[in-house]
Structures are given as structure tokens and as C-alpha cells.
Amino acid sequence: MRKRIMSLIITIGFVATISMQVMANPLSDKLSNQKSQLESQKNAYKKAQSNNESIEVSIEKLDSDIEKMYAQVDKTKVKVGETEKQIVKTTKDIQVAQDNIKKEQDLYDLRMRSMYMNGVDNYVEVLLDSEGIEDFISRAETVKTIVQYDNKIVAELTAKKSEVENQKVALETEKTKILLLKADNEAKLAKLKDTKKDQSVLVLEAAKQEKSYSGNVNNGQATVDATMKQIQQMKDSVPKYTASRGGSSSLSSNAVVAYASNFLGTPYVWGASGPQFFDCSGFMQYVYAHFGVSISRTTFTQINEGTYVARENLQPGDLIFFGTQSNPHHVGMYVGNNSYIHAPRTGDVIKISALTRGDYLTARRVK
């Protein structure tokens, strides 16, 4: 009897073990599938986020290129205008030179006609008609002076005419080159505008993709939210700053960031320097100008302002640049908490972003 009971207990235990294993396997499989799905969602989101960032950078580059191209076109227009004015002036100078030459020639012809009418065909006859050696010498000196004067005036005016005519030819050549450059710039600009339209469509699509995954994976919004709270604390703590045109070595970083945050939501427009619209470098220039600190206008020049700052030593208010050494196409302001405020691109507004992008280039500190 005792053996039967023991056998029954062992059998029940064996069956229970098998049942637990059978139950455990589906749970394990379910958990594995859930992990796999979550990982797949993360990868899909990262891919969408990477695609979106790539397109954002492309738009920034286009904004930078378009701004440079417009600047080139504007410079060319000014140069064309200046050249045209110079050509008009040169044309007038040529006309004056021609009139002077004509007057001198008319005066010369008048003297010759007068001499002919008085029975003298040329200067030789004037000399031959002299009465005695003293009269001959006197007439010779007079004739010599007249001839030298005639030759000098005609030579000077002729040289001036030649010089001015050569200048006109050079200016006309320069004008042709400038007009060709202008046409080339405008053609490039038109192409860039077309490309921007195509990129804008991709940006919208990428934004949709990122939004569809934002509920499943943290996309850095928590960092941005925390930074916004931090900036609000700055705004509450800093006193109202009165601008000093000479700048200040004791300029508060918190004051700079707090002032910059007043423009959150302001639309991006290339070439704009505020306050209704900004591009990236115009925004930086405007903010620092409020504190009497003068910095240059473009990303290309701002990257040489102030002093270099290593990424690990960034402080609020530092200018941070993105792109390559040969093409720094974007600039923003570090605000702390691994975040920065910037005017991103066409179609976007001034905002705070997490400093996670891969094309970080360098940073500069201006005070």
C-alpha cells in the first residue's frame, strides 16, 4: 500500500512538472515575441528618426546655399550698377576728349587757313618772309612754339581718348562677365528652389513617420521638456538686462539664454535677422546685439568669432556649429542640459532641440 502511495505521488509530481513546462513555454514565447516586436519598433523609429534628421540637415544645407547664392546675386547686381555708371561716365569723358580734339583741330585749321589767305602756305614761308636775321630768329621761335603746342595738345588729347576708349572696352568686357555671372547665379538659385520643394515633401513624410512611432519610443522630448523648465527658471531668476553697446565681460549666460527663449516659435526665413523672422545666424547676431555684443552676420564668419570651446566644456550661451569645416551650414546656441536653441530651416520655427545630431562641428564662446 505504501509503495502504491509513493508511486502515485511521484507520478503526480512528474505530470505537474510536465504541465508547468508546457505552460511556461507559451509564456516564454509570448515574452520573446513582445521583446522582438518592441525591438522592431525601436529600430523602425530609429530609422524614421535618422531619415528625418538626414532630411532636416539637407534642408539646412539648402537654406545656407540659397542664402549664399542670393548674397552673390545681390553683390553682382551692385557691381553691375556701379559698372554701368562707370561706363556712362567714361562715355562722357570720351565725348569731352573728342570735342577738345575737334576744337584744337579746328583752331589749327583756322591758323592754317589764315596763313593761306595771307599768302602763306606753311610755316616755311613764314620763315622765308622774315626781314633780317633777328626777325627770322623771332619767327622761328614763334613757329617752334606753335608747332610744339599743337603737337603737345593733340598728342595729349589723342592719348587721353585712346586711354578712355580702352577703359570703355575693359568695362564693357567686365559688364558682360558680370551679367553672365548674374545669370548663372540666378539659374543656380532657381535649381535650389526646385530642390527645396522636393525636400519639403520628404520632410513632411519623415515627420509623419516619426510621429507614428513617438508613442512607443522616447524621441528626446523629455530632454527638451526638462530644458524648457530649466530655461523658465533662468527667466525667473535673471534681472532685466540693459544693453551696452560696448558689451560686457560679466555678461550672464543665463540672461542670454533667457532672452533668446523669448523668440521661441518665431518662423525661419533665410536671410532674415529679426525680430519677426530669423535665419540661424541672424538669430544669433540679434540676440547678442541686444547685450551690446557685436558678431558678424553669417555662419561662415561666426565660426571664427570669440574663442574655441570643446564640446565637453559647453556652457549656456555658447555658439554651436554643424556641418563641415568647409561648409558650416548651421548655427545654434547651447542652453544647457545637452540642448540648444536655434532657427532650424525653412518651414520650421525657432525651437529647442536635443543635441544628438551627428554633424556637430565645433563651438565658440563670445562675450
Rank of each mutant, 00 (worst) to 15 (best):
T227I: 02
S248E: 10
L202D: 09
D135H: 05
N118M: 07
Q230L: 11
Q233V: 08
H290S: 02
K197G: 10
L27P: 02
Y259P: 02
Q148C: 06
I231E: 14
L171I: 13
D121P: 05
S36C: 03
K46S: 13
S36W: 01
S250F: 04
A363E: 01
H290Y: 15
S296I: 10
N337T: 14
V120T: 11
M20E: 01
V217M: 11
P344G: 04
V287C: 03
P316M: 14
I352E: 02
E305T: 10
E156D: 06
S40H: 06
Q41R: 03
S58K: 00
M333Y: 06
V309Y: 01
R357I: 14
D63F: 01
L110H: 11
M23F: 14
M6N: 08
Y360K: 09
G358F: 08
G215H: 05
L8R: 05
G336P: 12
N151V: 06
T83Q: 01
T362C: 13
K182P: 08
W270Q: 03
L251Q: 11
A226F: 00
P239S: 13
V201E: 15
A310Y: 00
Y334V: 02
S19N: 07
S200I: 10
P239N: 06
M234T: 03
Y116F: 12
T11W: 13
E84H: 05
K211F: 10
S162N: 11
D348R: 03
M115Q: 15
G306Y: 04
R4L: 11
K79N: 15
Y259W: 11
M115H: 04
